[in-house]
Amino acid sequence: MIYKNDVIKIESFSLEYALYVDGNREAFRDAVFFDLEHYVYKKPICVGVFGACCYNNGELQVTQYMIENKKDSIKILEIAEQYFKKQKNENGKKYLVTFSGNNDYTIIKYLFEKNGIDFDINEQFIHVDLQKYYEKYVGVCTGLKKLEKIFEINRESELISGTNLAKTFSKIVKDDDYINRMSKDKIEKILLYNEQDIVSLFHMYINWNKYVSNN
């Protein structure tokens, strides 16, 4: 398993621009910003990268796990369960912030059940899907990369298609030695891509009212 932990300093921001959730503009303090990279062929096969971050004391604390072989495809689910439980029970997190997160929810729920992991994130967290919030206020359904442009977010990572990611994870679960033939640069690009997704979620959340009506 590849593990990456990162800390990103966040410049000061105005609460007046933050998304209003449950009558609270500071719900982001109690939130996990969450995104999966995965492999699906007719049905979910595996989570390739689990990425999440939380805001604490002016910093985003980023946690990522990436599989290296087929055995890790089960281990990453166990780690995800432990992460969610810790954030809820020890750190008091109540919300999961995603972009078009129903897909990730469906995949991880299916894989949890398939592997005997008794944890339902729908019951444990309140889901805040920024794609749905945007569609509700603007009346248009859009993708994450287009919304980043609207929010003037300059992505550091290269764009990677879901198809290319799925092909990579397919090779990893079918060939235990494939990860050793992958360049470190490719692995870093995948992790950076996933990190950018979850960091973008945070920046869109706290700057929501600069770009989207929230009445």
Rank of each mutant, 00 (worst) to 15 (best):
I2F: 14
Y3S: 13
K4Y: 05
K4M: 10
N5W: 07
D6I: 11
V7T: 14
I8P: 00
I10W: 09
I10E: 11
E11H: 10
S14V: 07
E16S: 15
E16V: 14
Y17H: 03
L19E: 04
V21S: 03
N24F: 09
N24K: 07
R25G: 02
F28W: 07
D30V: 00
F34V: 13
D35Q: 06
D35R: 05
L36Y: 04
H38N: 14
H38A: 10
Y39A: 00
V40C: 09
V40G: 04
Y41C: 10
Y41G: 02
K43N: 12
I45R: 08
I45D: 10
V47S: 03
V47K: 05
V49R: 08
V49L: 14
V49M: 05
V49E: 02
F50S: 06
C53F: 06
C53H: 04
Y55V: 05
Y55I: 03
N57F: 06
G58S: 08
Q61M: 13
E68R: 13
E68I: 06
K71A: 11
S73R: 07
S73K: 02
K75E: 10
I76N: 02
I76W: 01
L77R: 01
L77A: 02
L77T: 01
E78K: 09
E78Q: 14
E78P: 00
I79L: 15
I79G: 01
A80Q: 06
A80E: 05
A80D: 03
Y83H: 15
Y83A: 11
Y83F: 15
F84Q: 12
F84H: 03
E90T: 01
G92K: 11
G92L: 06
K93L: 08
L96P: 00
V97D: 00
T98P: 02
F99I: 10
N102S: 15
N103L: 15
N103A: 15
Y105M: 09
T106Q: 13
I108G: 06
I108Y: 04
K109S: 08
L111H: 05
E113T: 07
E113I: 14
G116Y: 11
F119H: 01
F119S: 00
F125D: 00
I126D: 05
V128H: 08
Y133C: 09
Y133H: 09
E135L: 11
K136E: 12
Y137T: 14
T142W: 04
T142H: 09
L144C: 08
K145I: 05
I150N: 02
E152G: 08
E152F: 07
I153L: 14
I153D: 12
S157A: 12
I160Y: 10
I160C: 15
A166M: 07
A166L: 00
S170H: 11
K171V: 10
K171Y: 13
I172D: 05
I172E: 01
D175A: 02
D177C: 13
D177E: 13
I179D: 05
R181M: 13
K184C: 11
D185R: 14
D185L: 11
K189Q: 14
K189N: 15
K189L: 15
L192V: 03
Y193K: 06
Q196N: 14
V199T: 09
V199E: 06
V199G: 07
V199A: 10
V199F: 04
S200F: 08
S200D: 03
L201S: 01
M204G: 10
M204R: 04
M204F: 09
I206C: 11
I206L: 12
W208D: 11
Y211S: 05
S213G: 06
N214W: 04
N215C: 12
N215F: 14
